[in-house]
Amino acid sequence: MLQKQVKKQQNVLIKGTKAGLTFYFNDQCSFAALIAELQEKISERPKPADADDAFVRVKLVTGNRYLEEEQMKQLEQILTEHINGVIDSVDSNVVSKKEAEAARHNHEVSRLVKIVRSGQVIETTGDLLLIGDVNPGATVRATGSIYIMGKLRGMAHAGYDGKKQAVICASSMLPTQLRIADVIRTPPEEASGQWMECAYLDDSGKIVVEPVQRLVSIRPELTSFIQEKP
């Protein structure tokens, strides 16, 4: 009787790309088994002729496996020794607790009832909802968007850590300066501040100030309200 051969599951799959090498890791096996197979497979690969001079860019695809700091160091050492590889990116379905906490903070809304006076600086992680005015000489900064239910007559900097999708809204938009990410705009001379407006980065990377109703079309993700059907 012929015995049916069972194909051994690969813990490491290596694919070459124009950018370098991509390593696909099985997320169900132990890390020790993963390392053993990795060392076996890359030791069989011939070194490039210019291996001593050129680095090989490596991408790791780990699925539901989270790599601890020590595990990453071990992988870096093995890849460097055998193929002169440098880990360029890690594609994973999981994040660390620290990364999850940072993401949560970046999506939080800080609420403040205050008149921000000249010389004062308000800075927060995530979005800022300010009920009050920002006087000339005052500054409000947020990693997310800034919403001011009052007069903005000072400086507002949204997305100060680089978030270009951030917006600035105010009931009365008369700022001394607007900043979104690393883009700066001084207010136009014809600004009246008579109605609620929003500032955002358009496709060309410039800060545009328009009536707040435009937010529905330019930043639809800001709207989470779902109207119930009768």
Rank of each mutant, 00 (worst) to 15 (best):
I168G: 04
V183W: 00
W195L: 12
Q177R: 11
R179W: 03
A191Y: 03
L174T: 02
I168E: 00
R179V: 10
Q177G: 02
P188E: 06
A170P: 01
C198I: 05
I180W: 11
T186F: 15
S172D: 03
I184S: 13
A199Y: 11
V167C: 10
A191C: 00
A199T: 11
I184V: 15
P188A: 09
M196D: 09
E190R: 06
K164W: 01
S192G: 09
G193L: 03
D161G: 05
K164G: 06
A166R: 02
T186Y: 13
K163F: 15
T186W: 04
Q194S: 12
G193N: 05
R185D: 08
L174I: 10
I184C: 10
A170M: 02
Y200R: 05
A199V: 09
G162S: 06
Q177H: 05
A199W: 07
P188W: 05
Y160A: 07
S192V: 05
T186A: 13
K164V: 10
V167E: 01
I180V: 15
A166P: 00
A181Y: 06
M173N: 01
K164Q: 11
D182S: 11
M173R: 07
A191M: 09
I180C: 14
Y200T: 07
A170Y: 01
E197D: 02
E189C: 08
W195E: 12
V167F: 08
Q165Y: 03
D161S: 08
D182R: 14
A191I: 06
K163N: 15
D182M: 08
Y200C: 05
P175T: 03
R185K: 12
V183Q: 07
